[in-house]
Amino acid sequence: MAPIGTLHYLVVAAALFILGVIGVLTRRNVVIILMSIELILNAVNLNLVAFSRLWGLHGQVFAIFVITDAAAEAAVGLGILIAFFRNKETVNVDEVDLLKW
């Protein structure tokens, strides 16, 4: 087998990214859409850390920032989800078709 280079990690990250995109675009449940966003962020992180192998530690520092963002995003997203569920009794995105209720 070929030795594992940076490209291997990039391919894994790309596949993970596409899985996340599929999840965001096709699922109805908001919770799973948020999880798919986490998948996408993780794919980005994997890319950053893989590149940090080539160009120093900057990639790892950025990965930490991305994880911070993911935490903030999850907190706010789930807060919105709970507010939304309290009003509409559903967690499906395609039933959110009103700007005001």
Partner: peptide, 20 residues
């Protein structure tokens, strides 16, 4: 009990595959 995927899942899948 509900449908797992939304109505535009074909479009979404095609878009994702294009990205791939």
């Amino acid at each position: 009990r509900e449908e797992r995927f939304n109505k535009q899942w074909v479009v979404g899948l095609v878009a994702a595959v294009a990205l791939g």
